[in-house]
C-alpha cells in the first residue's frame, strides 16, 4: 500500500505544535517513516507541491498571507487537521478580539497605521475553511497527536474530548484549588486531555486547551469567581486568555462592558 502523503504547515503562532512533534524523540523517526513527508517547514528543506492525504496546520490566520496559504492547503488536502489552540480559536493573540481594533494594536506596537501590514483579526482555521479535526492544546499533547496520527493511518478520525479538566483532576485525586484554596481555576470550562497538569502542581488552570466546544458555561464561571472575590476586569481578562474568539465569552464581555458603561453613566 502506498504511504499516505503528509504535510505539516504553520501559520501565525509560536511554532510550539510543530515543536511538540519534533519533541517526540523516541517515536519521531519510526512514526514519520509511515508517511511520505511532502512539507515540514520547521524540520525540513524538502518541499513538494502535490495533493496531500493529510495536512496538519498549526497557527492562527492573522494575515492575508496566512489566509491565502490556508486556502491553498485546503484545496490540495483530503483531510485537514487544525493543530493546537492557535488553529482552533486563535489562542492568546485573539485575546482582545472585539475589544481592541487592529488599528489600535498596530498603533501601540509598531506606531503605524492599520494598512502598513496585511493584518487580519486573528482567527482559527474553521472561521475560513472546512476543518476535519481539531486537536486542542497550547501546546498539543504528544499522546494526543500520536493517537490521532495512528488512527489516521488506519483511516479513522480519533475520538475528541468533550469533558472538562475537572474530570481528570478528580481521577488524579488532586485537591480542588478552586473550592479549597479559592484560586481562580478555569478547569470547569476547559477541555480536558492535559491530565490536570496545573492543579497537579498546585496551580489554577488558565484554560490553555480552550473552552469545551458547546459545553463551556462562561457565565457560571464568572459567578463563581465573583463570589470568590475576584473583580470583573480580572475575570474577563482571564476568560479571554484562550477564549477571545468564543461566542459565549464575547457575549459575556459585551454584557459586562455595557453594564459598566450604564453604571458609569448614572453616576
Amino acid at each position: 500500500m502506498a504511504k499516505p502523503k503528509l504535510g505539516i504547515f504553520s501559520l501565525t503562532g509560536c511554532g510550539g505544535d510543530q515543536l511538540m512533534i519534533l519533541n517526540m524523540e523516541n517515536e519521531l523517526l519510526d512514526l514519520l517513516s509511515y508517511f511520505e513527508i511532502k512539507d515540514f517547514q520547521e524540520g525540513s528543506s524538502y518541499h513538494e507541491d502535490v495533493e496531500l492525504d493529510i495536512a496538519l496546520v498549526e497557527g492562527s490566520v492573522s494575515t492575508e498571507t496566512d489566509l491565502k496559504r490556508l486556502k491553498e492547503i485546503r484545496e490540495k488536502s483530503k483531510t485537514l487537521i487544525a493543530l493546537g489552540d492557535c488553529a482552533i480559536g486563535g489562542c492568546v493573540q485573539a485575546m482582545r478580539n472585539g475589544q481592541m481594533s487592529m488599528a489600535e494594536r498596530m498603533k501601540k506596537v509598531y506606531g503605524v497605521e492599520e494598512d502598513y501590514y496585511d493584518v487580519l483579526e486573528p482567527k482559527g482555521l474553521s472561521a475560513h475553511v472546512k476543518v476535519d479535526l481539531e486537536i486542542p492544546g497550547c501546546p498539543i499533547e504528544k499522546t494526543e497527536i500520536f493517537r490521532a496520527i495512528t488512527s489516521l493511518l488506519h483511516g479513522d478520525l480519533p475520538e475528541t474530548i468533550d469533558y472538562p479538566v475537572c474530570v481528570e483532576c478528580k481521577l488524579n485525586g488532586y485537591p480542588c484549588v478552586l473550592v479549597e484554596k479559592g484560586m481562580p481555576c478555569l478547569g470547569p470550562l476547559t477541555t480536558a486531555g492535559c491530565d490536570a497538569r496545573c492543579p497537579g502542581l498546585g496551580l489554577d488552570c488558565i484554560g490553555c486547551r480552550g473552552p469545551i466546544p458547546d459545553e463551556a458555561n462562561a457565565a457560571a464561571e464568572l459567578d463563581v469567581l465573583l463570589e470568590k472575590g475576584y473583580d470583573e476586569k480580572y475575570i474577563i481578562n482571564r476568560l479571554r486568555f484562550f477564549g477571545g474568539n468564543f461566542e459565549d465569552i464575547q457575549k459575556l464581555t459585551k454584557k459586562i462592558s455595557e453594564r459598566r458603561n450604564k453604571t458609569e453613566g448614572n453616576e
Partner: peptide, 9 residues
C-alpha cells in the same frame, strides 16, 4: 511571521 501584538493585549 504574522504579528501577534503581545505588548498591546
Amino acid at each position: 511571521e504574522g504579528p501577534r501584538f503581545f505588548e498591546a493585549f
